[in-house]
Simulated scan of single mutants.
Amino acid sequence: MSHSFGLRALRLVPRRFVKRSPLPVADDSQVYLLNQRSKPIYPFEEALRALRRYAVRPMDETVEISLQLNMRINKKTKRGAFQGMVLLPHPLKKKKKIIVFAEDDLAMEAKEAGASIVGGKDLIAQIQSKQIKFFDLCLSSESMYDQVKPLQQHLRAKMPHPRRGTVTDDLAEKVLQLRREQEYKVDKEGNLNVAIGKLSFPDDVILENSRCLLQAVDQHKKIKGSFFLSAVLTSTYGPGYYIALSDLIN
């Protein structure tokens, strides 16, 4: 009994009375934090060559550029998220699902231009009943716009609007334009990710697409200082490489 009591007593000893050996002190000259080291910045072509070396899968991987923008307007105010469209000189052949609200001749023109789904009241009913959920872009003829307005809660950000140029009677030209354009979105933190090519594209083609994107985004600049803070080039299954902004800004 005395033996068991002794073990119990040892467990009840407060920690402040337990002697511990001091921890070894490391040499300050050998200690550093990785996140405080500056990240290497590569020339654009060198980053592309590295991504191609990583491409071991039997597929043509997509090349993406990630930008970090300065969202400050002044010392106290930051701008909100924004989005836009850019017509890349060498677009990716990605099929976009475009629906168009139109009737009669305008409907026929939109269909011939490559719109995925074209319709009038029947299409409105399909959207309301959620028979059609997944699509990329939405257009409307001017005569159909008043009938389309109640679809705001269904279409949300894809809702056609005259100020966006998505309510028009020149539907054929607009469909052709949207099929070539690339959409970009910037969140409130200033992050932007856009596909700008394929690894099979020549270097100068991907570079030209990148420069065109930065020119389009630069139109939203509201500060006097630097708008583009950093740029990272990556691919579908590859790592990310910080690239020199001087290669992208003419």
Rank of each mutant, 00 (worst) to 15 (best):
A107D: 03
L106G: 05
K185Y: 03
I124G: 08
P40M: 07
K185Q: 10
R20A: 00
K133C: 07
F101H: 01
R79L: 08
F17Y: 14
D203C: 11
V148C: 12
L192G: 04
L178W: 03
A107N: 11
A55N: 15
K94N: 02
L229D: 01
R15D: 13
F44K: 03
V13Y: 02
N193V: 03
Y145P: 02
R179H: 12
V217Q: 00
Y242C: 11
K121P: 07
P58S: 14
K94R: 02
A26I: 12
T166A: 08
L139A: 01
V100R: 00
A125K: 14
I124A: 04
Y242V: 15
F228L: 09
K94D: 04
Q147P: 01
G80D: 08
S230E: 03
L51S: 10
V13H: 05
L155A: 09
P150D: 09
Q126R: 15
D187K: 10
A231D: 01
Q182P: 04
E112Q: 04
F227Y: 11
S246A: 15
H220T: 07
A50R: 15
D136A: 12
E61L: 14
L51T: 05
M71Y: 01
L51R: 08
D122R: 11
G6E: 10
D60C: 07
R16A: 04
R164N: 12
T234W: 05
K198R: 14
I65Q: 04
P24A: 11
M59C: 14
K174L: 14
A231E: 01
S143E: 08
P22R: 13
M159S: 10
P239R: 15
S141W: 06
Q153L: 14
Q215M: 08
K221V: 01
F44C: 02
L88Q: 02
L155Y: 05
S4F: 15
H220F: 11
R156C: 05
I223D: 02
I73G: 06
Y241S: 14
M159I: 09
Q30N: 14
Y237M: 14
P150A: 13
L155D: 15
L7Q: 09
M159R: 10
R16K: 02
V232W: 01
Y32Q: 03
P58C: 10
E181S: 15
M59G: 00
K19Y: 06
P24C: 10
N250V: 07
S38Q: 13
A47R: 00
G190T: 05
V217T: 00
F44A: 02
M71G: 09
I223C: 01
